[in-house]
């Protein structure tokens, strides 16, 4: 496991939301997290990234304990994060958004930027545009591109397909697979649960801040209980 969360308890201002969650990502694996609204999926992502401090449990990355570190320290170690909402800098241009993603890099990151433009050719064309002017799908790509600038080992994606048209959902999922093929481990939360389980290596089902199921994506799709309770029959 490159990233592992062990028995995490966390919440907001004294209200516990996660009551002991465990999960892991292997090198270059795609993991999907599914579960009903309010299950604590986003809360888990924020806790891994250090935006929330767990009251219990450990987060191990690459053999090191990173529990309780500040986000900028965790980002430096190689975990990058795309939040569910507000995940771009709207008044900055596309290119400036990518530069902000590489803020902590002291070396020349133009090579990396070229690679990323290779994955998202649309962005290259729009690189001088302010992100505010872009469409929802393009923004989501900017958000992912920004998070990839540091060449992370694990990428956290919180509902990357949220409020996109079916065609764009498909496109974003293709990009996720492409990014994963380049060696990046992916931990993503998804509401398009069926699609997400189809393309992931393994999946977790969360509800009420607890682990409910955990298996390969295909096995979860075939699991009757999961299907009934979480995939809408």
């Amino acid at each position: 496991m490159i990233l592992e969360a062990r028995n995490i308890k966390a919440g907001y201002g004294g209200v516990e939301i996660l009551h002991g969650i465990s999960m892991g990502v292997d090198k270059a694996e795609i993991i999907s997290i599914i579960g009903p609204n309010g299950a604590g999926k986003s809360t888990l992502m924020k806790t891994i990234l250090g935006l929330l401090k767990p009251t219990h449990g450990k987060i191990i990355f690459d053999g090191h304990d990173i529990t309780g570190l500040d986000p900028d320290k965790i980002v430096r170690r190689g975990i990058c994060y795309v939040p569910q909402t507000d995940n771009v800098f709207p008044s900055l241009t596309v290119e400036e958004n990518l530069e902000m993603g590489a803020f902590i890099r002291k070396d020349d990151f133009r090579g990396r930027m070229k690679e990323i433009y290779g994955i998202f050719p649309d962005l290259k064309e729009a690189k001088r545009f302010r992100v505010r002017k872009l469409s929802g799908g393009q923004r989501q790509m900017v958000a992912m591109a920004r998070a990839l600038m540091l060449d992370p080992q694990v990428l956290l994606l919180d509902e990357p397909s949220m409020s996109l048209s079916p065609r764009l959902v498909k496109l974003i999922f293709e990009k996720i697979v492409e990014i994963n093929k380049s060696g990046v481990g992916i931990l993503m939360v998804e509401q398009n649960a069926r699609e997400a389980l189809k393309l992931c290596h393994r999946g977790y089902v969360l509800a009420m801040g607890r682990n409910k199921f955990e298996d390969t994506g295909q096995a979860l799709l075939n699991n009757e209980k999961v299907g009934k309770l979480y995939l809408g029959g």
Partner: peptide
Amino acid sequence: TKTGKAMRAASDNMELARVSGID
């Protein structure tokens, strides 16, 4: 400048600036 851009970024979205590793 890098600092100037980071300033605009932080004024846009402080939390995202933080998770991008900006101090």
